[in-house]
Design a protein around this nucleic acid. Structure first.
Lengths: 356, 356
DNA sequence: TTGAAAGCGGTACCAC
DNA sequence: GTGGTACCGCTTTCAA
């Protein structure tokens, strides 16, 4: 691990009154008790919710605590009870959608009294494993996996240790873990519908090589339904789930004759890169010559340069559900909840010719 | 706080061998010791770096630990020694630049053996206070403030409790805390130089109402130097540090006659909104009619729709410095390190007429 | 090398 | 209501 050496290079707490120089180290309940002239138990009770302390004692304790700068040690508390720690496992944190997920999750967890340990992982299993072990080391009460691909065995270790495990937008549906996901097939179906209604004839689909369950599902449904209707779909997979991959996809698709006039990009980031190249390098007008649908509704999709029609994930609702799950703990552990993506209408798809 | 009730609603560990049903709760060293037929001390030593265990014992312990799924309890360990926890205080996490900071910081901290607790705060002092108290509750060894405005008194509480405190890009230079910042005056100066070299005559500056030390400094230097040269600068402050504010700023600046032809936006996000409106709503060509310089070098600045000339913060180097600071702990606690922003040349500023 | 025992900071249970 | 005590899980002397 780390190569740090420093230990308690400072006066022990009980030397406090004597030395009084640069105290260092944390204040303990014992110190507060001494100063307040009460027992440690009294101090503990003062800071415990269902207490039973006289107003008098309470005040003395609070005064002493304030003067000393006392803070209850949750590490010690977590020794007997729950640690109140939630581990958030996430990869690709800089992606706008992921950043928002982390933002919303941490915010809601915090508001509900949890403390969040963020484990930032590469997508590969190895680094997730290392990370998850930390989860266990710190006795997290729960692990929430936003992304990355943890090995089933490790998740099982978390479960075996009594942790709650919540998987978001992933397929591995392990016994004992809760899963929440966005209804990707709905998005795929709806995307196709939007493009068809706009009168698009030559359909394209742009995806990444990440091949996440979510991505694959969106693609599958879009393509299947289209083909069932006798429509061909040109599928392009240009690289990771990035702006650049979207740009590359556009070059491939329009580099040959007869490019598509309606494209579903399984991610906004792909869509934005795709749009830029379609316009700049191939002179296509959006939505006149080309309609584009994305997924995620990242902030940039609303920027004037794009105005991308897309689907929003109900992130706040999803986070609320996670928090509820954790707070219940008993409540229906091994379930799967599906959230409906919300279509966001902007200008990258033509208004559509009503045919009713 | 939270309203959760559940306690150890499960068989005690020592019932394991007997009941063997849905074990739950964490495995302890004692259980490993029993199974391995050694003392608890032996188990502890096996997992301590400078151990002194016979190969035989070690193997027995590791076998038992593996079978039981044992993980050292860092909470208990942190009771006597350092907790190895670092608190990362951050606000506005969805902002691209902030997301990257969090990403890089967590990654490097992790790599160096630290575990990161993320405290997501509104920018207001109150919520930061609440958050920082958590820091103390969990006995974090250090607190790293990426953004938000913690009250000086709380920071002092952290310091008094022996925490290391590192402030990034903030001005509050408290005794005992380390500060790292980007050289904002250099950026302001350089931005002005770029615009002048491009032949811009009517200068503008777009900032936000956040009035961070960093933002103020960039503005101050840009404006001061320009005025010292007899050039006037129109300063616009449209709202928070967002894309929309940049857009609004453009509307204000170009809504009247004789708008600027060279603008320094103190943040990329402002710059991108500014560019979109300048082009779409006022028909200005960039860089022919209008030159724009930003700051941060967020990913979007490199997108084809923008190609913004800007300054990058050397985030990796900064994170490395933070980690070094934490690992040293002794090393020059109360210092301030300045990092040079790196100019990134793109196409939002004209090549510039050399005049040498 | 090993095991026993003390202590880290709290909370819960116990009499008083 | 209050203080004493046991115990949470670990590391660390200290003898053996």
């Amino acid at each position: 691990m780390s190569a740090r050496v420093a230990r308690h290079d400072c006066a022990p707490p009980w030397a406090l009154g004597v030395i009084a120089v640069k105290t260092r180290s944390f204040v303990s309940a014992r110190m507060v008790a001494e100063r307040a002239g009460v027992s440690r138990s009294a101090v503990s009770r003062t800071f415990t919710d269902g207490a039973s302390v006289s107003e008098e004692t309470r005040r003395k304790v609070l005064d002493a605590a304030g003067a000393l700068g006392y803070h209850v040690n949750h590490l010690a508390r977590g020794l007997r009870e729950r640690s109140n720690i939630v581990c958030l496992v996430v990869s690709n944190m800089t992606t706008p959608i992921r950043a928002r997920m982390v933002d919303i999750m941490t915010r809601q967890l915090q508001a509900s009294g949890w403390i969040t340990m963020v484990i930032n992982t590469e997508t590969d299993t190895e680094s997730v494993s290392k990370a998850l072990r930390q989860t266990l080391n710190y006795r997290a009460d729960a692990t929430v996996v936003l992304s990355g691909t943890p090995s089933a065995s490790l998740i099982e270790a978390c479960l075996a240790n009594g942790q709650q495990v919540v998987l978001i937008n992933r397929d591995d549906r392990l016994k004992g873990s809760s899963t929440l996901a966005v209804d990707n097939s709905l998005a795929g179906r709806e995307a196709l519908f939007l493009l068809q209604r706009a009168g698009c004839k030559r359909l394209g689909l742009v995806t990444s090589n990440a091949q996440t369950a979510s991505l694959v599902e969106r693609e599958r449904v879009f393509v299947d339904i289209a083909r069932a209707q006798g429509l061909n779909v040109t599928v392009t997979m240009a690289g990771p789930t990035t702006y650049e991959s979207g740009a590359d996809a556009a070059r491939r698709l329009f580099g040959r004759s007869n490019g598509p006039d309606g494209v579903f990009c399984v991610t906004d980031l792909l869509a934005l890169g795709f749009m830029d190249v379609a316009r700049d390098e191939f002179g296509l007008r959006i939505p006149e010559d080309l309609c584009v649908v994305g997924f995620d509704d990242i902030e940039q999709a609303d920027w004037r340069a794009y105005q991308l029609t897309t689907f929003a994930q109900p992130l706040e609702a999803m986070a609320t559900h996670v928090v509820d799950l954790l707070n219940d703990s008993e409540g229906a552990s091994s379930d799967r909840k599906l959230f409906e993506p919300i279509p966001i209408w902007r200008r990258s798809v033509r208004p559509g010719v009503k045919t009713d």
